[in-house]
Design a protein around this nucleic acid. Sequence first.
DNA 1: ATGGCGATGTGATGTTATTACATCAACATC
DNA 2: GATGTTGATGTAATAACATCACATCGCCAT
Lengths: 135, 135
Amino acid sequence: MQKAMHAPELTKNQRLVLDALSREDGPLSAYTLLDQLREHGFRAPLQVYRALEKLIDYGLVHRLESLNSFVACSHPHDHAHGMIAFAICEKCGQVDEFSDDMVESRLSGWSKDHAFKLSKTTIEMRGTCAQCKAA
Amino acid sequence: MQKAMHAPELTKNQRLVLDALSREDGPLSAYTLLDQLREHGFRAPLQVYRALEKLIDYGLVHRLESLNSFVACSHPHDHAHGMIAFAICEKCGQVDEFSDDMVESRLSGWSKDHAFKLSKTTIEMRGTCAQCKAA
DNA sequence: ATGGCGATGTGATGTTATTACATCAACATC
DNA sequence: GATGTTGATGTAATAACATCACATCGCCAT
Ligand SMILES: [Zn+2]
Ligand SMILES: [Zn+2]
Ligand SMILES: [Zn+2]
Ligand SMILES: [Zn+2]
């Protein structure tokens, strides 16, 4: 289970980053975000990284470790994220976000059995989505 | 399920990188490896990355996406890797590698259900190991 | 007004990964 | 022996990703 700190009002920069991510159907890198936001006054990577950090804390954005990039949460209202898994299409970049109680229970179980204090879990599946497979 | 291409004789550079990783109990970054191997003639990142790429293909080394680093396989003889999960201690860096058939079956099941052609799965748990928790 | 605090702006720097191109050894074919 | 092919290697340059250090600003509570 993950903390999903409640989101206060977003700051201007956080809003800009979240909106940019929400416009996309796939993940964006921090530097792509920076480029998109230059017209809104962004000048430096840190502005992006700082906003991302908060948005991730609030559960509104997820980091995809295997891509070094970031995606808006697909379920921004369902604010109690458990363990999340992602299916990432390597052809089109589309990302599917889902949860599976059994997976969560097995991984939590392993942690309990091994006295491992779990703080964060990354589950990312890479492959080809149905659409791209068809084409 | 993952391809675990059979390993031929390792080249000199591959051997050096694998030995360096095997000496460690935790993961190393490519640049840390490079530094360790300078005395053996390594001069450039690419020498490390090329060796790592092959070692990963052979299933002798794993990449930890959430750390951008690399670790020697804990089960170098059990060469039929299915889906692998890692438990990574953020205090001491120790990495535990394990498999769980139920996790694999649930994630494969999701993929089948969504016509997602799975090519590679990353499962990484971050937290604190039993030892570090005690201390 | 003063201090604390979170957010921001900015430049420099640190870290991770790839591109491009040249070379070399091993082996097969002519 | 010359030639071509293949896989591994060497090297420099560059790209991509992330953080540090320090200054400033707005806001709110003493
Ligand atoms: Zn989400
Ligand atoms: Zn696709
Ligand atoms: Zn392994
Ligand atoms: Zn530990």
